[in-house]
Amino acid sequence: MTMPGGFNTRDLRMLVNLFKMTLKDRFLGSGLGILWAVFSPLMLMGIFVFVFSFVFPGRLPGRDGTQPFVLWLISGYGPWLALSEGLSNATGSVVSNGGIVKNIAFKSELLPMVGAALGVVPLLVSFALILVLQALGGTPPNLAWLSIPYIVLIQFVFVSGCGLFLASLNVFVRDVALVLPNLLTLILFASPIFYPISAYPDAVEPFLAFNPFYVIAEGYRKPMLDGVPLAPAMMLYISVLSVGIFMAGLWWFRRLRVFFDARL
């Protein structure tokens, strides 16, 4: 069976296998093993919740109390964590798997996609945390939650697309993987994730609203906190953008793939 982008069911199976292997390798040899996949995002979210609730208390317009703020923070930071982790993994994926690329015949474009999929783990952890917090606060999940799997898919496509571009570039320009963490921190603070969009000057607000990182974060926040899915126009915008970036990234990756042999 063929799928869009020239992939088939064999590639899909390979993607699943590679995902399992990478996840396992990541924590291999550590005492707690796979539990780190849960602890690590929990610790990070804990730190930010502490900093923004007690050290620099943030306030949300129209909502009082610490609990709504914590929920708001996690619902934005969790997806961000997923996005940045996915993108970092994807970017280094081809270089760090050079041995596989040189010795096993498979579509190497699966590697950045595996990297992007690894980001889904912290995402699920933050979902679980939010569900627990909401249950404690007496708010059951609402119907709008049903739109979340679609946003997860869109995020995967978006991160895969960026990852395909960056991973193949990183083979030739290794600076890419080195500059990425700094760039991600910059984007984090330039996106309305730690503070509401209303905290920005009025002049930049309309532009920020189209920041894909922000749109994706809103895709989770809206149903979780307001009980409504992302506005259809924004949903369409982010879908088209993500698929476009994915196709462009795939084209770029395949264009450079034949030269990997020279640099791995």
């Binding site: 570039l169 030739f172 320009v173 290794r174 450079l256 030269f259 042999d261 020279a262 640099r263």
Partner: peptide
């Protein structure tokens, strides 16, 4: 054929395919 790429020429491969 393998292009002989030096580290400083990485961009050239990426942009003009070597």
């Amino acid at each position: 054929r393998f292009p002989l790429v030096e580290t400083s020429q990485g961009w050239r491969v990426a942009l003009s395919r070597g």
